[in-house]
Simulated scan of single mutants.
Amino acid sequence: MSEKAKKPQKLKARLPRGFVDRSAADIHATNEMIEKIRRVYELYGFDPVETPLFEYTDALGKFLPDSDRPNEGVFSLQDDDDQWMSLRYDLTAPLARHVAENFNEIQLPYRTYRAGYVFRNEKPGPGRFRQFMQFDADTVGAAGVQADAEMCMMMADTLEALGIQRGDYVVRVNNRKVLDGVMEAIGLGGEDNAGRRLNVLRAIDKLDKFGPEGVKLLLGPGRKDESGDFTKGAGLGEEQIEKVLFFVGIKDYAASADDLAKLVAGTSKGEEGVEELNIIGALVTSAGYDATRIKIDPSVVRGLEYYTGPVYEAELSFDVTNEKGEKVVFGSVGGGGRYDGLVSRFMGQPVPATGFSIGVSRLMTALKNLGKLGQVKPLAPVLITVMDGDVQSMGR
C-alpha cells in the first residue's frame, strides 16, 4: 500500500451538556447537609423511602406519550415490550405511584422523606442543570391543613438546623383555592378561560422582578422592556387588574383577610381557601412561628400544575452577588403544596397529600455563601512506606 494507514482517531472525552462531575469536597458538603435535614425530618416522625430513577411515562402526570414519543421535558425510552419509560422529573409523582400501588399495605397517614436525583430534558444554562438533587418530605392521607402547617414549620426548623438564622429566611404560604376564587371573581373561571388564567399567573409571578407597575402592564395590554421587546399582556380591564393587584399586594394578611374574603365571596372555592389560610396562620402563630418566619403571602405562585390547596415557598432573604456582579436577594430554595389529586389518579378515590421539596444544590450554594458548609476537614491521608519485604511502617 502506498498510503500510510490512517491512525485510528482518539475518542474525545466529553461531559454531556447540562451534567456535572462532582468533587470530593462537593460530595462531603452534600452528605453533611443531607444528614442535618434528615435528622429534622425524623424528629417530626418521617421515615425514608426510595423509588427508582425510571417510571412508566404515564405515571409522571402531565408528561404523557404523544403518538411517536413522550413530550419534551423528560428523558424517555421504550423498553422491550414497547412501553414508554422516563427518568423521573421530580420525586412527587413517583411517590404517588408508590402509594397507590401499595395502598393496602401502607398505614395512613403515611409520612415519608427521600433524597435523590431528578432529570429535566431542558436547555441547560448558567446554574441550570439537566440532573440535580431534591430532598422531599410528604404526608399522604391527612386531609386537614394541619399537615400543611406542619410542613411549613418543619421547613423553618430545617433551615435553622442548617445554620440559617431567623431574619435570613421566610416560608411564604398561599392557597390555590384563593387564587382560583380571585380568578372566578374577575370572570376568568371555567375551562374556557384556562389560557387567560395562565397569562395572569405568569404576570403575577413577575411581581418581584418588575414590581406592581410592570405587573399591571402584563395584566393589561402588555409590557415593553429596555431592549424594546414587547410581551403581550393578559388583556384584563381596569377593575379586574385592580382586584388582582390588591390580592397579590397584601403585605399584612391579618389586616386584609376580611377584604380578601369579600373579594372571593360566592366563588366555589375562594372562601374555603381563605379559611384554610386563617387556620394555618393561627396554627403556626400558636406554635411560636411568627410572620418573620412563616408568612401568609398571596403573591406566591409556584408550579400550580397539580396543587389543589395551600402552596408554600422557602426563600432566603440575604444578598448575594450574581454572575453579572450585581447584588441580588438569593431567593427560593424549595417549596411545595397540597396535591390531593395526584394519588387519586391511580385510585379512583380521593387520597389527600401534601409535601415539600428542597433544591439541594441551590441550598448548598446558599450555605457556602454563608460559610455554613465544608467546615469539617476530611480525615488526613494515610502514608504507608515499605522498608523491606518483612517490615511495614505506617504513619499519618
Rank of each mutant, 00 (worst) to 15 (best):
Y113P: 06
L219Y: 03
Y169I: 08
V178M: 13
N102V: 00
M133K: 05
A254S: 10
L179Q: 06
M151P: 00
R128A: 01
I204F: 08
A185H: 06
R176D: 06
G214R: 08
I164C: 14
A25I: 04
V391Y: 15
N369Y: 10
E213N: 11
F19Y: 12
P124R: 11
L108S: 03
D229K: 13
R196C: 07
G233E: 10
A265N: 11
L342A: 06
G214M: 11
G273Y: 13
D168L: 13
Y113R: 07
P70R: 03
L162C: 02
K36D: 07
V343S: 01
L162G: 01
R14W: 10
G341M: 02
E32G: 13
P378F: 07
I186S: 05
I204C: 14
V333A: 03
I250E: 10
V360N: 05
S256D: 15
R293C: 05
S299L: 04
Y110F: 15
Q78T: 07
V118E: 11
A257T: 13
R202F: 13
S23Y: 06
F63G: 01
A161W: 04
A147V: 03
G144F: 00
K368H: 07
R120L: 01
R396W: 07
K224S: 10
L108C: 01
T57Q: 08
Y113K: 07
F330E: 13
I294R: 06
A203P: 13
F19H: 02
I34L: 15
Q146I: 01
N174P: 15
G187T: 12
A137D: 06
R345H: 04
E72W: 10
P221E: 15
V382Y: 00
V215G: 11
V244T: 01
A29R: 10
V173G: 01
V170E: 11
K224Q: 15
V178G: 08
D259K: 14
V311M: 11
E105Y: 08
Y113F: 15
V300E: 07
A115E: 14
G355P: 10
P221A: 14
K216V: 03
G190C: 03
A234M: 09
L64E: 03
A24M: 09
L60R: 02
E272M: 02
P52V: 00
G195K: 13
A147K: 03
G237T: 04
L277A: 12
A161K: 10
G325S: 06
V171H: 04
F330R: 12
G341P: 01
P350W: 03
D229T: 12
K251T: 12
N31G: 09
T267A: 09
E272V: 02
Q107S: 15
R14T: 14
V300L: 08
N369Q: 12
P109D: 05
T308N: 01
R202P: 14
V382D: 00
L201D: 07
E326F: 06
E150D: 15
T92S: 08
S361M: 09
Q134T: 14
G141D: 07
L367C: 09
A287V: 04
A291H: 14
A5L: 09
Q165W: 01
G341L: 01
D297P: 00
L260G: 00
T51I: 03
D136I: 02
G222R: 04
T354Y: 03
Y56Q: 01
D229R: 06
E213V: 10
